[in-house]
Design a binder for these strands. Structure first.
Lengths: 225, 225
DNA sequence: TAGATGATCTTGACGTCGTCAAGATTGGGC
DNA sequence: GCCCAATCTTGACGACGTCAAGATCATCTA
């Protein structure tokens, strides 16, 4: 039986693509049975290998979760980008679309969303994870950039990113955690995003807080933004 | 040995106050070793009873977590109230203080915060849990009320609550999940709360979205707000 | 081509977990 | 004093993550 004939799991000691198969299994389990149903053994069973096989590829459960979180950030990034691309070429519309994409991702992928934002201790030093996270954060900068006045300093950029991100993330997370259950399922929580952005970007008088310009949290060079 | 002489754990089959002891153990474990260190067996050991004793009081692990979440919401409510009470009697100061209390609670009690907002499936039908949650939500209404124009309808109230809550909660949650790790540890994310509130409350023109007035999510009667 | 080595798995075991069942003990009510 | 409910203990089971030992496969080198 040639290698091309063998299906995954039929080979005994060399799956050939087990790391990817285990990650696919993890995504599927999060989707089908949720957070509590995700385990190393369940992923191994779904991939057709023994319970100890994942250890070779991920080290331990945290390693698997970190790799899954990297995938999640990439999918998240892609959904944001797709929503922004589909919106009319006008900054308010782009901002609304980005917010809608954020919330839509959270609703469609609650397990991945929880993984991304703190359900488990992740290996933040993992380069794939960091790269995926950084790409998603970069989009945040792109989203708010049109609202900043020409010549705005780094502190203003940070404040705007923080305010927009807090607002959208807070809304998405409150939705997921069931705190808004009896409110109507709409994007009311996002309707003020444009005003929010304009509020912060246009408010040059708010310098009472003497926050020093902080370095970019993900250490992006200027041309990366 | 009279009952008053017996310390908890010394008695064999009637602790006397085991439910409270298990909850205290749960709070202590969350504080000392975090989310992963919290288990029924660990609580039982800390309380000095056998591993199956908690089942009588809580039914299962979800029952314990729900009771812990009710405590968490009460403590949260108290910290918000304390911050609001300590602030100058001026609505902007009150709002800032409430936001600071929210974030302070999250920072000081990350395990409880995660429990309240989605780490585990909780029994939402539990009356103690619901009452604690409702009291905390009621404060939200009190916090935003001064920013609403006289005669503002229920939809405006809801929008303002949602916007303020999303913004503060999002900031607190992003902080906890490490997404803001290399930003400076300050409350920059809250500095725009007063403007936020003024933005929404004062903006009568923003009626493009035809959101019907939604019922109060926690079914509060008007005099409860 | 054969042997060596590293990669990639399997098998088995251990301790911890949540949960369940059976039973022991205690307190309260009649 | 008896009965019953409440409140525990003991023991067991299956699932979990992890570790160790070993089996198998793929690749490289002499």
């Amino acid at each position: 039986m040639s290698a091309s004939d063998a299906s995954p799991g039929k080979r005994d000691y060399h799956h050939g693509n087990l790391r990817a198969a285990l990650l696919s299994a993890g995504i599927a389990l999060l989707d089908e049975v949720g957070w509590d149903g995700l385990s190393l053994r369940a992923c191994a069973a779904r991939a057709g290998v023994s319970h100890a096989a994942p250890a070779h590829h991920f080290g331990n459960k945290h390693g698997l979760l970190t790799a899954l979180a990297a995938i999640a950030f990439r999918r998240f990034h892609d959904m944001l980008a797709a929503h922004r691309a589909a919106a009319p070429d006008e900054k308010l519309a782009k901002l609304r679309a980005a917010g809608a994409g954020y919330v839509r991702f959270a609703k469609q992928n609650p397990g991945l969303f929880r993984l991304m934002f703190g359900e488990a201790a992740l290996n933040h030093a993992d380069p794939e994870f960091e790269a995926a996270r950084r790409a998603a954060y970069r989009q945040l900068g792109e989203i708010v950039a049109p609202f900043l006045p020409v010549g705005a300093d780094e502190a203003a950029d940070h404040r705007l990113r923080l305010l927009v991100w807090s607002s959208v993330h807070g809304y998405a997370h409150l939705l997921l955690s069931g705190q808004l259950d009896r409110m109507q399922p709409s994007d009311d929580g996002l309707s003020h995003l444009p005003d929010l952005a304009a509020l912060v970007a246009g408010d040059g008088e708010d310098s009472g807080s003497e926050a020093a310009a902080s370095p970019d949290p993900l250490a992006l060079s200027p041309h990366d933004s």
